[in-house]
């Protein structure tokens, strides 16, 4: 594998977004790019990430390879890169190590690091194609604020989507709270719009601890999309220019 990324910051943000949810995981390298799928330890959430091969220049791969990486170790090495550095990932066919090279734009500094890889026997889950009953896109910063605010009052949030809007509500020992967003279109700054596509009303309850954790991906995209259907996991998606980070969260049950 040899994959060169113009901005090391992209990988830094991706790893920052998922490192508190999963510790050890395989980066699966194939023709479509570098992908990752992992569940958290408690098997409540699943993260799915893809950095498409088009996002790298060049992207060269002789045969598919799974790079078993400890994300804490990778974070330590990525801290040694500037966001604007050019990052090149290199690995042999049956690798023991992953090589990371950081070069500044002026091309007068080259940093070379290696991290040890591990064998990770990870089960891959098939995610069924789902026609979601509701898809809500909104500013990622706003979603982050709502999750953090409500998490002060409660450990779970009810998300209700209807044609009137989307309502996030919670109640806890000290009281209760809710935030309702109505659809609106910001013509000048579309990333600040809230869009609600609805085929039928949805009401589900989720753990806020996980949602707050997902919001660490907010640096990746100014827009987040929430996709919901009754009785299936919530999909929280951060799209990047050439890839995505998706989080799936199992709903609370037995209300």
């Amino acid at each position: 594998l040899e994959a060169r990324l113009e901005q090391a910051g992209v990988l830094k943000k991706v790893v920052d977004a998922i490192k508190d949810l999963v510790q050890d995981c395989n980066f699966d390298c194939n023709d479509s790019g570098i992908a990752l799928q992992a569940m958290d330890n408690s098997h409540v959430a699943l993260v799915s990430m893809l950095l498409k091969s088009e996002g790298f220049s060049p992207y060269r791969l002789d045969r598919n390879v799974a790079l078993g990486v400890n994300l804490t170790s990778l974070t330590k090495v990525l801290r040694c890169a500037q966001n604007e550095d050019i990052l090149t990932l290199k690995a042999e066919d049956a690798p023991d190590t992953l090589s990371l090279v950081f070069e500044n734009a002026e091309n007068d500094r080259i940093s070379e690091y290696e991290i040890k890889l591990m064998d990770i026997d990870q089960e891959h889950l098939g995610i069924p194609e789902t026609e979601y009953a509701a898809a809500i896109s909104m500013p990622s910063a706003e979603f982050q604020r709502i999750c953090r605010d409500l998490n002060q009052l409660s450990e779970s949030v009810a998300i209700e989507a209807s044609k009137e809007g989307v309502k996030f509500s919670c109640s806890g020992d000290i009281g209760s709270g809710s935030v309702t967003l109505r659809q609106h279109n910001n013509v000048d700054r579309p990333e600040l719009s809230t869009k609600i596509e609805l085929t039928e009303p949805v009401a589900l309850t989720f753990s806020l601890k996980y949602l707050v954790n997902f919001c660490k991906a907010s640096a990746l995209s100014s827009v987040v999309t929430l996709s919901l259907s009754n009785e299936v996991p919530l999909l929280v998606e951060y799209a990047m220019g050439s890839g995505f980070v998706r989080f799936y969260l199992a709903p609370k049950i037995g209300e």
Binding site: V44, L46, L125, V232, A250, P251, K252
Partner: peptide
Amino acid sequence: VTGQGSINSYFFKK
């Protein structure tokens, strides 16, 4: 709210 579902019960093993 009484319980937390697990993600494996929604997605199938490959």
